[in-house]
Design a protein around this nucleic acid. Structure first.
Lengths: 133, 133
DNA sequence: CTCCGAGTTGAGAATGATTCCCACTAGCGA
DNA sequence: TCGCTAGTGGGAATCATTCTCAACTCGGAG
């Protein structure tokens, strides 16, 4: 049975309130800073649950897991700014088809794929150009 | 200055001797089992160096980094069996082009991408079918 | 060939993220 | 409301990875 607790709601709200990928630790700090008394273990559990239910997407970067509440409910990928973390959701039917056919061509079954694109967004690129030259 | 030590060679050899992704820990165990007295820290260092020099590819899975000596020298992706770890190297010019144009379309600069496909290889699928029904 | 110095090594400690443990709390159906 | 049990919290435990530092060794100079 799955219960609705204010803790889960708090985690989901905190996640929905941002449009970039956050680590569990960072989310926990933010919640504590906002006056919540939620525990770190609970944040990890809530995030794992959300990810499993498809309510959130996750990716690994620099040795830690980052999570994000996604607007599109279906399967999609991300274009992530490596400087500010801003994230754009992208659809890529071609990629899905390519992954499926490539897997099949090599006799692989039940293909899953990890596709994420990192880059420097226009704003950050401009900021860097202005500082460095 | 970069020196040639038997430890680096041992790590590279051990990596070349397998065609699947291995964790630093597993590689270290294997080397020790083979009678080497190499240290864990050294294995980590050697793998990080190999990855940086493009001699090996790495990916993150289940909270740990996995490494593999790759046959193709250039940029490519992987099709990995989630059951036995067997890996097939795949070229995907379409993906490169797609990643570049998608990034550009959103104003992102210097795109890098992570593209890996996981599945169950024919052998493992057959083994599972034979055991479960 | 020998010597010297800086890049390397290895064992264990330190770090950092994540998970486990378990007594306690609080949803939810009856 | 009552009781059952999933969920919680916090501190300990775990695990991968990195750091520390004294000992070591590759490789060029002499």
């Amino acid at each position: 049975m799955k219960r609705r607790t204010w803790q889960r709601a708090a985690v989901q709200d905190a996640l929905t309130g941002r449009d970039d990928f956050v680590s569990a630790q960072a989310l926990h700090s933010q919640l504590r800073a906002d006056g919540s008394s939620i525990g770190l273990a609970t944040v990890y559990r809530a995030l794992a649950d959300l990810a499993e239910e498809g309510e959130a997407d996750s990716l690994q970067a620099e040795g830690e897991s980052l999570y994000r509440a996604c607007a599109s409910p279906g399967h999609h990928h991300h274009l992530i700014c490596r400087s500010c973390g801003r994230t754009v959701e992208i659809e890529a039917d071609d990629i899905e088809a390519w992954a499926a056919s490539t897997a099949a061509a090599h006799g692989f079954r039940d293909p899953q794929h990890v596709v994420d694109v990192f880059g420097t967004c226009a704003a950050c690129a401009a900021r860097q150009d202005a500082r460095i030259p």
